[in-house]
Amino acid sequence: MAGRAAAEGIRKAIALVNSVADEAGDEEITPTEIAEAIRDCLELSEVDEVPNVRRYLGEALDAVSDGMPADFVAMTLYAALGALREGTPH
């Protein structure tokens, strides 16, 4: 997969979002933490190596800022992860 570090960063953000969506875990995850995880990904130059990854991450960040449901944020992050996968020859 192209952008291994970016993929790991996106997976981390997805895990945070999913724990909110599933209401799992002892500690409460805040939108700020999710936004931080997404911003970390955006700082990686790898996200520009594959079309649309930066745009999906930007959409996800907007969705967090706008208070959209966690599932919607997760969907957008999965799309970014998928775009990375598709940037790699099968």
Partner: peptide
Amino acid sequence: DPKKAVDAVNAVLV
């Protein structure tokens, strides 16, 4: 699964 919806669309587009 709604969370995978856009990802699935992109995979179909590929």
